[in-house]
Every structure is written in structure tokens, then in C-alpha cells.
Nucleic acid binder design. Structure first.
Length: 787
RNA sequence: GCGCCAGUGGCGGAAUGGUAGACGCGCUGGUCUUAGGAACCAGUGGGCAACCGUGGGGGUUCGAGUCCCUCCUGGCGCACCA
């Protein structure tokens, strides 16, 4: 028996499931049911990503408690999921907000800490003023919080970090081995990790016992360096300038007209050029990133666009060191090095190699690799999350707790007023006497980023009742997840964090698993037309009715304007409620429609015609089997065999839309040929194949036809029957199709040519020209060539 | 700007280098009726035809929607990453 771990991304219990969930889970369910019929040992669990800020907001808004709100939502959504006929193993259910989950996460944190993979440091962090919490770099999109959209501020706080950067190289390299992941996701992760190979060069500061370490990918342009630029947050800036001055500069930098505008501030210090006997000026510049490298660059204006713009603005010399026309400046392509005593005449790669060797020899620099990836900041200043098992003493030191001191449970009695962290204000929970030292201590009041929760839930599913995080043998036996299905929006955050966790745990526990998800399938979004009134008020599709070619709103009879088709969203109100659809069309039509109109990895447009078409298909199949007689034709067996083969192939390749086409093709054939199967064995075969897609309908039909609900296993395919004995052979002349002839497979070329040449269509084409070549692709095509 | 993906009928979409448009929706004409959110039959890329047709232009090949080059358009991601 083969194990198949099939997993769909678990939902946040927001209150109700939406169509996106339905599509996601139906796709996964079809896979899981298919594999069960094949006799595989299928693991198909479901759980809840249950910590997170919305619960706190809801608690304030509705005067309830985050826990009560969350658990109620879970119950509600669970009953909704059950209506979808999902073959889930609810015994394995877990919720990350429950202590039987998060206490083991606290254990894992202790493991990570002891392995040197969790650490605390003062850091300039992204502060979301609306959520009043820190965000990871990955959670800041265009300078705004990923959830709130509020402009993120920079703040210095003492924070816990996970050392994901230790795995940067492995996380990057192992992407190559993930053959069953979408290329797109791998590309996004590669870009995020952002590996650059170059050099780190030391620049001495004139008259000071201090130096700068500058990373560059273009050490071949070092002779063209005419200035240094620092980020305003660079160490040396606060060393040489007052706080007031720095704030002044920050204000200056904030006043720019467009994002690319360069601004600088000339400092009083100068740097020595590492190779030339000259000094170059040091600026603070707005375009230098402080979280990349050391936050310092050398400017080579002749061969870098940004440096060029800056040099023009501040009248800094521009020295060409790569051969090019003046009009082409800044010249950033490859070329021969000039004006560089040690490198003249060399091509880029040779020059880079040579200069790095020289730097290393003279100890003024070395080869260096840089990553964009930063360590993962996991502290969140929120109540509704997993507590970090750490205590602080009054002298400022801290202690990570022992596993025997766990669990650290969240207190239920908190005052949620929306201002700051409720744990910080909960004195009786926070203040304790340390059992080891008998000293007064205070608990860590930050909780984990909820992405920590989802980084290992697929491991916990293997045994959600174990009194330790997981069982090593079980992990080795059942991971990786064979098919992981979810939205593309998690391409970086969740999937990268999970990969990191798997590798970190592998090293700590000596596991044999390198990657958590063998195959990743990203399903497309569901879209729908948008509708609004003339007052620009979005309205729901169900409020719209059609009258004499125009759209109107029910009740008010306002004129309705049809907008573009967009992703279903609450704000645009173009949503369809799963409960209503199930009520009106039933589960079978709903499941059919989720896979009918587009391939699962593409957008699915919700249309009334689409769901109605699925409903009609359900009715048609049910009606077909009501016909109480069996009449077969000689090729019926073959047709059915082909059907089984195609359905299987298309389920395995996630081409579920083609499964629907296969079903139509089969019933078109059966009805057109007036073939009725009723309660024959062939009906059993057909129904088994339909079962993964529409289990409800199949079980009902099976009961009616065979007085049983035991549908058995996936049919074994008789390959003999798949072989076509006669074919329609296309005949081409000069590569163009002229006609087709029906013939037996395995025909003899010279024999069939004789009959081909007798055909009028062929004779007319060839006339008396001389045939120079005949290409016979046996049983596929014949192509006749003449001069 | 860089990277990735994609461009096929009125629409969604099928096509291991070998009959382009499977299957569905929509539409047209017809049938039936318990008048339905039904069902059935016929048709549906363009053109009267020869023929022409997979974003444009080249190429490889006996043969290209498919492979190569180039350009255009759209989507997504990243984006002052030194």
C-alpha cells in the first residue's frame, strides 16, 4: 500500500467559508477520493489556522472574546465544510489556538533556541500603526501592511528572530529539486532569497580608526568609484552626526516628488580609495537600502544608473572604466575594462576574478555572497497568538523556559480595549516568581507570528494527540506531503517559512525529510462580474435582475451598471455564498461546476449559465440511469475503457476540466447510440469513475441500481481494449491535408499507396507530376511529396 | 526596468511535432410538452468557391498552435537589492 498525503491549505476561521475554499477543497477531495479507490493509504486531514488579529478586532466589535468567537466560527465552518461532501479525516482535526497544538509549538521554539536558530535582538522593525504590531519584511507590501494597508513605520524594538538566513543557500538550491512545483512559485522564491555573488571591499575612513565594508557585484568598476553613499540608518551616521541632524536629514529625504528622486547629504568625513592615492567624499543618500549588505555602497557613476543620477545632481566626477561611448553613459553592459591599472583590457568576468584575488592578497576585500533574505522576525505585540516561552528578570536578562515548564497558556481573562497588547496589561499573568531562581520575573508578552503556527501543522496532523510535537518515525514515513493544494498568495510567506521549518527540524531531530511539500498545486481564483448602481454603490449579484435587456436592482428598481469581472471580494460585493448555491443547485452540481469551466490552476469565472449547466449534467446522468433496460453495442466496452483511462489520467494531472469533458463525451455517445446500461457491471465501472467528483450522486444511484453503497475499487484497465484496430488515416500532399481514409492499423505502405493513388482527390492533385517522396508515419499519417 | 506565464471561434477552453477548434456555454432553425432554470433533433471558425485560418514577422521541418529567433499585446511577481 502506498501512502498518499493530500493536503489543502487550512483556513482561517473567519466565520463562513467562501467559494475559494469550496474550489480548493473540492479539488483536493477529488484527488483524495481517487487515491482511496486505488487502494492507497490516504491521509487527508483538515484544521484551523485559528490565531490572528481578526479575532481580537471582532471581540472588540461584538463584545465577545477572541477564543469564543474563534471556536464558534470553527463549529460553523466545519458544518459548512461537511455539506461539501469532503472525505476528510476529522479525527486528525487541529486548531492552532488550542493548547494541545500551541504548547508543542513552544517546545519547538525551545529546540530552535537551543540549536541557535532563534535569537533576540534590537531591530529596526516594521510597525503597523493600525494593528499596533510588528510585521515581517515579507508582510510589508509597497510600504504598507499586508493586512491593514496602513503605511508602515520604522521603530526600534527588541524582537525574536528565526535564523532563516542560515538556510538561504539550501532553500535556494533545493528549489531545483521541486519538480512538481509551479515554476512561477519557485521563481518568486528565488527572487525573494535574492542571491548575489560579488565582493566585500573595505574602505578606510581618513583620519579615523574606522572602516566601511561595502558589498558590490561589480568590483571590476572599483577604479571608477568617485563617492561613497550610506543609508541614513548606517552605524557611521549616528557616530558622526547628532540625532537632531539625522532627523533633519530624514525629513529632507521624505520630501521627494517621485520615488526615484535622489537626495544626498555630504558628510564631513572622507574615505580612502582602496587602490588609488585619493580620497573620495562620503554622502548619506536616500536611495541606499539599509537592510541590504551593510547599508553602504561605493558609487561608480559611469556604470550604474542610480549612481549616475546622483553624481549629476551633486556634481560628482564621472570616471569611465568600461569602454563605451560617452553618449551611452551610464553604461551598465559588459565591456572591456579601461582606466584601471590592474585590469585594463580584461572582460568583466576576468576582471572580477582578478581584482578579488588582488583584494584578498592585500587584505582589503574578499569574495562575498549576499542575500536579500532577512531573518524572520516572529514577535507580535498581540494577545491572540501563541505565547513565546521566555521570562525576563528585573536586571534585564532573560531565560528561555525548560520544556518541563510548559505549557504557557494564554489567560482567558483579558481586557481587550484595542490599545496595545492585552498581555502586557495583564499583571497577574505577566508577573511571576521564577521557580528556578526565586526572583521576580515577567513573562514575554509578545506572541508568535501566526505564520509560525502554519509552518508545521502538516507535521502535527500525522498525530494530533501525541504528547510531544511529533513522532520521528512517523514523520520519516509519511512526509513529505504528496500533494499540497492552495492559493498562489502563499507563494512566498507560508511556503518559504514551512520549508525553513522542515529543514530546521530535520537538523534538530535528525529527520530524513528535506522538503515539506513534494507537489504544490496552486488553484486559480474565482471571479465574477461586478455590479454597481449609478451612485457607485457596489451591489450583490443576487440583487440584480434583467428586464428587456437592461439590468435593474431588486426592490429599488435602480438602473444597474455592469462592471468588469474581478476576483470575488466582499468589498466589491461580487460574491456568491456557498450555502445559497448548495441550497439552489445541490452539492453535485456545485462540485461539478468547481472543475468545469477552466483548468483548476486558472481563474474560474462564476456564471449562472455555468452552474446551471452543471445542474443539467447531474439531471442528465440521473435520468440516464433511470432507463430500465440494458442494450449494448459491440464497441461499448472499448468506449468505457477509454473513459476510465482518460478520467484517471486527467485526475492525476489535475486536468479536472477535461474529466468533465470526458463525462460529456461518454454520455453523448451512450445516448446517441441508444446504449442503456442500467444495473449492469459496466454501470458500476462508470459510477466508480464519477465517484471522486460527485460522490453524493454516485452513492444514491448505486443504492437505487444495486441496492448497495459499496462501490468497490477503481477499475483495472484492460489495455487490450484501448488498442484501436482501425483508424482514420490522414493523407497529405505537400504537407497539406487532402483527405482521410479508414483503414486497419498495421497496413502495408505499398498496398495502401495503391489505393490512395486511385482516389480522385489525390489524382487531381498529383496529375502527371513526379512523386519524389512519400512519408509514412505508420498508423499516423501519410504525406506525399512531388517536385 | 528585471523575471515568469500567456495570446487558439461570439465566450470558457481541447490538441505526445502528424486531421486545429475535443467538451461546454451561447446562438440559429425545428420537435415535443406536464410551459421548464426542462428535454430532444439539426446546425454553428471565415469564405459562394478555390481556399484562408491558432497576436505580427522570420526560421527549422516532408509537416509547426506546438520547436528556434524577433517584435507586439495582456496578466502576475519583484523592483533604487549596488
Amino acid at each position: 500500500m502506498q501512502k498518499k498525503y493530500i493536503l489543502e491549505m487550512f483556513p482561517y476561521p473567519s466565520g463562513n467559508i467562501h467559494m475559494g475554499h469550496v474550489r480548493n477543497y473540492v479539488i483536493g477531495d477529488i484527488c483524495a477520493r481517487y487515491h482511496k479507490l486505488k487502494g492507497d493509504e490516504v491521509i487527508h486531514p483538515m484544521g484551523w489556522d485559528a490565531f490572528g488579529l481578526p479575532a481580537e478586532n471582532a471581540a472588540i466589535q461584538f463584545n465577545t472574546h477572541p477564543q469564543d468567537w474563534t471556536l464558534l466560527n470553527i463549529e460553523n465552518m466545519k458544518s459548512q465544510l461537511k455539506k461539501l461532501d469532503l472525505d476528510l479525516d476529522w479525527e486528525k482535526e487541529l486548531a492552532t489556538c488550542k493548547e494541545d497544538y500551541y504548547q508543542y509549538q513552544q517546545e519547538l521554539f525551545i529546540d530552535l533556541y537551543e540549536a541557535g536558530l532563534a535569537y533576540k535582538k534590537d531591530a529596526l522593525v516594521n510597525w503597523d500603526p493600525e494593528d499596533q504590531t510588528v510585521l515581517a519584511n515579507e508582510q510589508v507590501i509597497d510600504g504598507k501592511g499586508w493586512r491593514t494597508g496602513a503605511t508602515v513605520e520604522q521603530k526600534v524594538l527588541s524582537q525574536w528572530f528565526f535564523k532563516i538566513t542560515k538556510y538561504a543557500e539550501e532553500l535556494l538550491n533545493d528549489l531545483d529539486g521541486l519538480e512538481l512545483w509551479p515554476e512561477k512559485v519557485k521563481t518568486m522564491q528565488r527572487n525573494w532569497i535574492g542571491k548575489s555573488i560579488g565582493a566585500e571591499i573595505r574602505f578606510k575612513i581618513s583620519g579615523e580608526d574606522d572602516q566601511l565594508n561595502i558589498f558590490t557585484t561589480r568590483p571590476d568598476t572599483i577604479y571608477g568609484a568617485t563617492f561613497i553613499a550610506l543609508s541614513v540608518n548606517h552605524r557611521l551616521v549616528s557616530k558622526f552626526l547628532t540625532k537632531e541632524k539625522i532627523n533633519e536629514i530624514k525629513k529632507l529625504f521624505a520630501e521627494i516628488d517621485n520615488e526615484k528622486e535622489k537626495k544626498g547629504y555630504l558628510m564631513d568625513i572622507k574615505c580612502k580609495h582602496p587602490l588609488l592615492d585619493k580620497e573620495i567624499p562620503v554622502y548619506i543618500a536616500n536611495f541606499v537600502l539599509d537592510n541590504y549588505g551593510e547599508g553602504a555602497i561605493f558609487g561608480c557613476p559611469a556604470h550604474d544608473e542610480r549612481d549616475y543620477d546622483f553624481a549629476i545632481k551633486y556634481k560628482i566626477p564621472i570616471i569611465k572604466v568600461i569602454e563605451c561611448e560617452d553618449k551611452d553613459l551610464p553604461f551598465t553592459q559588459n565591456g572591456r575594462v579601461i582606466n584601471s591599472p590592474l585590469l585594463n583590457g580584461l572582460e568583466k568576468s576576468e576582471a572580477i576574478k582578478k581584482i578579488i584575488n588582488y583584494f584578498e592578497e592585500k587584505e582589503i576585500g574578499n569574495k562575498s555572497i549576499n542575500y536579500k533574505l532577512r531573518d524572520w522576525g516572529v514577535s507580535r505585540q498581540r494577545y491572540w497568538g501563541c505565547p513565546i516561552p521566555v521570562i525576563y528578570y528585573e536586571d534585564g536578562t532573560f531565560r528561555v523556559l525548560d520544556k518541563t515548564e510548559l505549557p504557557i497558556l494564554l489567560p482567558y481573562d483579558v481586557n481587550l480595549n484595542g490599545k496595545g497588547n492585552a498581555l502586557l496589561n495583564h499583571d497577574s499573568w505577566r508577573k511571576i516568581v521564577c521557580p528556578k531562581t526565586n526572583k521576580i520575573a515577567y513573562r514575554e508578552t509578545d506572541t508568535f507570528d501566526t505564520f509560525v503556527d502554519s509552518s508545521w501543522y502538516y507535521i502535527r496532523f500525522l498525530n494530533n494527540k501525541l504528547d510531544k510535537p511529533f513522532d520521528i518515525k512517523q514523520v520519516n514515513d509519511y512526509l513529505p506531503v504528496d500533494k499540497y493544494i492552495g492559493g498562489i498568495e502563499h507563494a512566498i510567506l507560508h511556503l518559504l517559512y514551512s520549508r525553513f521549518f522542515m529543514k530546521a527540524l530535520r537538523d534538530i531531530y535528525n529527520l530524513k525529510v528535506n522538503e515539506p511539500f513534494k507537489q504544490l498545486f496552486t488553484q486559480g481564483m474565482i471571479t465574477h462580474k461586478t455590479y454597481r448602481t449609478q451612485k457607485d454603490e457596489w451591489i450583490m449579484p443576487r440583487e440584480v435582475y434583467l428586464n428587456e435587456g437592461s439590468l435593474f436592482r431588486e426592490k429599488t428598481n435602480e438602473i444597474v451598471i455592469e462592471g468588469p469581472t474581478e476576483k470575488m471580494s466582499k468589498s466589491k460585493k461580487n460574491v456568491i455564498e456557498p450555502d445559497e448555491i448548495l441550497e439552489n443547485y445541490g452539492i453535485d452540481a456545485t462540485r461539478f461546476f468547481m472543475i468545469s469551466d477552466s483548468p483548476p490552476d486558472r481563474e474560474l469565472e462564476w456564471t449562472d449559465e455555468g452552474i446551471q449547466g452543471s445542474k443539467n449534467l447531474v439531471r442528465r446522468i440521473e435520468r440516464y440511469f433511470k432507463e430500465n433496460r440494458t442494450d449494448m453495442k459491440h464497441d461499448t466496452d472499448k468506449m468505457i475503457e477509454k473513459f476510465v483511462f482518460n478520467i484517471e489520467k486527467n485526475i492525476l494531472s489535475f486536468s479536472l476540466n477535461k474529466c468533465v469533458a470526458d463525462i460529456y463525451t461518454l454520455f453523448n455517445y451512450l445516448e446517441k447510440e441508444k446504449i442503456y446500461l442500467h444495473n449492469s457491471d459496466i454501470s458500476k465501472k462508470i459510477l466508480v469513475c464519477l465517484y471522486p467528483i460527485v460522490p453524493n450522486m454516485v452513492l444514491n444511484l448505486y443504492k437505487q441500481l444495486f441496492d448497495s453503497k459499496n462501490i468497490g475499487n477503481w477499475p483495472k484497465i484492460n489495455k487490450e481494449l484501448l488498442i484501436e484496430r482501425s483508424i482514420n488515416l490522414p493523407i497529405q500532399i505537400q504537407g497539406k491535408l487532402i483527405t482521410t481514409i479508414n483503414t486497419k492499423k498495421g497496413y502495408k505502405e505499398n498496398e495502401i499507396l495503391k489505393s490512395i493513388y486511385k482516389l480522385d482527390k489525390i489524382k487531381n492533385k498529383i496529375q502527371d507530376r513526379k512523386v519524389t517522396k512519400v512519408i509514412n508515419v505508420q498508423d499516423k499519417i501519410i504525406n506525399i511529396i512531388f517536385d
